[in-house]
Amino acid sequence: MDLSSINPVLLIASIMVSATPILLAAIGELVVEKSGVLNLGVEGMMITGAVVGFAVAVSNTSPGLGFVGAALAGALLSLPFALLTQYLMSNQVATGLGLMMVGLGLSSLIGKPYEGMKAPPFPKVEIPLLSDLPIFGRMLFSHDIMVYFSVALVVAVWAFLKYTRAGLILRAVGEAHDSAHALGYKVRHIRILAILFGGACAGLGGAYLSLVRVPQWTEGMTAGAGWIALAIVVFASWRPGRVAVGAYLFGGVSVLQLNLQAAGADVPVALLSASPYLITILVLVIISARGAHAAPASLGRPFHASH
């Protein structure tokens, strides 16, 4: 076995590409969960974003429009979830699973005419000066714009939650919806906005798969990425910065595993692919053992104003 053929610069660049879809979806889900809502339908919203983004991009030969379309489609698909859980007090776990089924079915119907087509190319943006840096230039600063966007989004969400009043209100709603309601905040409206944001992010993540990472449309192409995004939010103990770490770690383990194989190392593939999930459980245990209740206190609980 000769591991010298693995080029760490290219490896990290690949990890960034491979992690971007789950990073986008996870940061959206983080906001949703921060507001106290658990939406298990990420997979469904991602794949709908993937197909709509692809369709829009192909029809207009514009990947940029594709991403816009994907975000709108993801948000639109999350709307029934938002209405059901917020206005009709339906159970979030069941509604989320229903959302997943609807998304998977719908995407496959929409996608039939687009099978076998090629995506319009999505240009890389070499950041001036920085991309000329030795090593780091190729590793970090020669990606397409969505990679930078996803990182920027993480920073924005972090800043929003930490420093803005709106972010504070969102967290309050997620921690104690009854008190937030008593203070006069519109719990439902805030949660619906959060759900729509989560849907849009999942849609973007899906479109990144179909427009950049693969790039093509095929039925069922998200292959569980939405569930990984859910895991990452937990792994991150609901902190934006750690979502990025988690996404790169998940992406990293899978890409590294492939690279090890390519370099000729014998790796127990099936068991290694389970390792990110085991790590997540471990992290969960450590967080909860420390007694830090990281999860938003109202997570998954229905809210009715006249309690």
């Binding site: 690949s14 491979s18 879809p21 798969l209 990472r213 693969v214 093509q216 095929t218 192409m221 998200t222 292959a223 990425a225 899978s254 890409v255 492939l258 390519a262």
Partner: peptide, 8 residues
Amino acid sequence: DPAKEADA
């Protein structure tokens, strides 16, 4: 699994 195949 298109994404995995692309990564590979």
